[in-house]
């Protein structure tokens, strides 16, 4: 029973983080058909902002807010540098610019800060553990679960109830038609990147809590996670991304328990082979998104 409860907490905590990561990637892909390779760098930017604010007398929550804001801004900059100027050109061009922008940010961090990991300030509560019904778990895990629940609920509310949310869902289904109803393209695009940055920024705070440090390559793993979760969940479906995130966390956690050590190190090879197979079977991902879809 305890082992089971432990497993559930692990899956929920990991799944919450994965779901937020996937959602941040899909919100941009679903609307703009852009696979944003610079997505992981939003997490890196959050980390480095925290690191740079580390010596300041600000309360942690304020530092965190500034760090998340930086991720939002970087998201918007991604739009202006890597997406908007080439959006009417080829799909390939947009992919390459986002890949180049990702490399640009990583190497800027190498150049301006350091290739070595830097420690980020975190509140003490992140490193404490609690005992819950016989299960010992880091408080961080519980915070992650709570954050994921709150953010996902807020996000769902935004998408279902607000006019902006409606406009974004409409744009995801048919961008041109949404524009012909007066929805400004730029508003939708900027919102998508900003929300992507917000999700990445918040998930970064939780993710950084695992190692308490940031390095230029930190964004790669979240990017890969978001890719897989997205492919599992359907590349255009927001609900799918969330389900995909939790499913991936379930698979990962199970494999950690089940696979022998020799095979465990090949885990990425297994999951990515699965990604390829899923895409072959269903190029739009396991869970189908909105029916029609057109680029701008």
């Amino acid at each position: 029973m305890t082992a089971f409860l432990q497993f559930v907490v692990d899956v929920l905590a990991l799944g919450g983080a994965y779901a937020l990561m996937a959602l941040g990637l899909v919100i941009v892909y679903g609307i703009l058909r852009l696979v944003n390779f610079a997505y992981g760098e939003l997490i890196m930017v959050t980390g480095y902002t925290l690191f740079l604010l580390g010596g300041s007398p600000l309360p942690w929550i304020l530092m965190a807010a500034v760090a998340v804001l930086m991720a939002v801004l970087t998201g918007i900059v991604t739009d202006h540098v890597a997406f908007r100027p080439v959006r009417t050109k080829s799909v390939t061009a947009v992919l390459i610019t986002s890949f180049a922008f990702s490399t640009l940010l990583q190497n800027a961090a190498l150049l301006l800060i350091s290739p070595r990991p830097r420690s980020v300030p975190l509140p003490d509560i992140f490193s404490e553990t609690v005992r819950l019904g016989g299960v010992v778990t880091p408080v961080r895990n519980l915070i992650t679960i709570a954050t994921a629940v709150v953010l996902l609920a807020l996000f769902a509310l935004l998408m279902k109830r607000s006019v902006l949310g409606l406009a974004m869902r409409a744009a995801a289904a048919n961008f041109t038609m949404a524009r012909m109803l007066g929805v400004p393209a730029n508003l939708v695009i900027t919102s998508a990147f900003a929300i992507s940055g917000l999700l990445a920024g918040i998930v970064a705070l939780l993710w950084l809590g695992r190692s308490a440090s940031v390095a230029p390559g930190i964004g790669l793993e979240p990017l890969l996670v978001a890719f897989i979760a997205t492919v599992i969940g359907g590349m255009r479906s927001l609900e799918g991304a969330v389900i995909g995130g939790f499913l991936l966390a379930f698979i990962d956690t199970s494999l950690n328990h089940l696979l022998p050590q020799d095979l465990l190190k090949f885990r990425d090879a297994f999951t990515f082979t699965a990604v390829i197979l899923i895409l072959l079977w269903r190029p739009e991902g396991l869970i189908r998104g909105p029916a029609a879809g057109r680029r701008t």
Partner: peptide
């Protein structure tokens, strides 16, 4: 197109583009 709507011209395309999930 978004500006044209604000100027008072609304378009109904032949493809009958309802947003199916809305």
């Amino acid at each position: 197109p978004e500006r044209m709507v604000r100027l008072g011209a609304a378009m109904v395309p032949e493809t009958r583009d309802v947003f199916p999930d809305l």
